[in-house]
């Protein structure tokens, strides 16, 4: 079924390319495929795109996404637990989180460049800031809504305040936290192109941006496909981890 719909999509793409009749506007699947082969090999003494193979561009972007969202998730978890557990901090800090969440990454990227230069640091900051709010909001909501029955049961067994957080509140929040993490990685993914607008090569976002400048539409499309497909893969991995880590999801 999936294979069939994929084939249908390819056919549709081919038709659209033929109808447009302009490869700079809609490149044909074949042209994108050729670029894939070209960018994955050394040809005429040129290595991939701008001296890096496609896999290298993608690998570097993935590394940024991974490190950036890991930092964002870690910070979001801590902030979320505090927001969920301490009412007055929630009152003060929640608008700040919502504010940051509403900002498009490109908007604060300029500021990050002024502060941190144009190398890796501002890129990781951008991705971390983008990934933080979904985790913080999900964690705060889950911690705040921890099942009172289970908290009471733990207290009845002699659990300390810290025991209750570690053994009841956090595990019961885990399903929602995980949803937050998946959202966060998604946001980091969609922000990577923004993060790589400045000094982004090597990097898949930088590659797409350069290709756009030179109207290499087939490379742009290839880059988009690489980002999208690797995103699907990562989300699949996260989901698999979720079923392993949270076997009780949906059973309470």
């Amino acid at each position: 079924m999936r294979v069939l719909s994929l084939l249908a999509l390819l056919a549709l793409w081919q038709l659209a390319a033929a109808a447009a009749g302009n490869p700079s506007f809609v490149p044909a699947p074949r042209a994108v495929w050729d670029q894939l082969v070209l960018l994955s090999t050394t040809h005429d003494g040129v290595r991939g795109y701008s001296g890096h193979l496609l896999a290298e561009h993608l690998g570097i972007s993935l590394r940024r996404i991974l490190v950036g969202s890991a930092l964002g998730v870690a910070a979001g978890l801590v902030i979320g637990v505090v927001l969920g557990a301490v009412p007055w901090i929630r009152l003060v800090a929640e608008p700040v989180v919502t504010f940051v969440r509403a900002l498009p990454p490109l908007a604060y990227f300029s500021l990050l460049i002024i502060w941190f230069g144009i190398d890796e640091t501002p890129k990781l900051w951008l991705l971390a800031i983008a990934a933080l709010p979904p985790v913080a909001v999900a964690t705060a909501a889950a911690v705040h809504g921890a099942p009172t029955g289970l908290v009471e049961a733990a207290r009845a067994l002699g659990a300390s305040r810290w025991n209750v957080i570690r053994d009841v509140v956090l595990p019961s929040a885990l399903p929602e936290i995980f949803t937050g993490v998946r959202l966060a990685v998604g946001v980091a993914y969609s922000s990577v192109v923004a993060a790589e607008t400045v000094n982004g090569v090597p990097g898949i976002g930088g590659m797409v941006r350069d290709a756009q400048r030179y109207l290499q539409t087939d490379v742009v499309v290839l880059g988009l496909l690489a980002i999208g497909l690797s995103g699907l893969l990562i989300d699949g991995l996260l989901r698999a981890a979720e079923t392993r880590l949270i076997p009780w999801r949906g059973r309470t």
Partner: peptide, 8 residues
Amino acid sequence: QQPRLFPW
């Protein structure tokens, strides 16, 4: 009244 066991 409910078992209130920890599912994790």
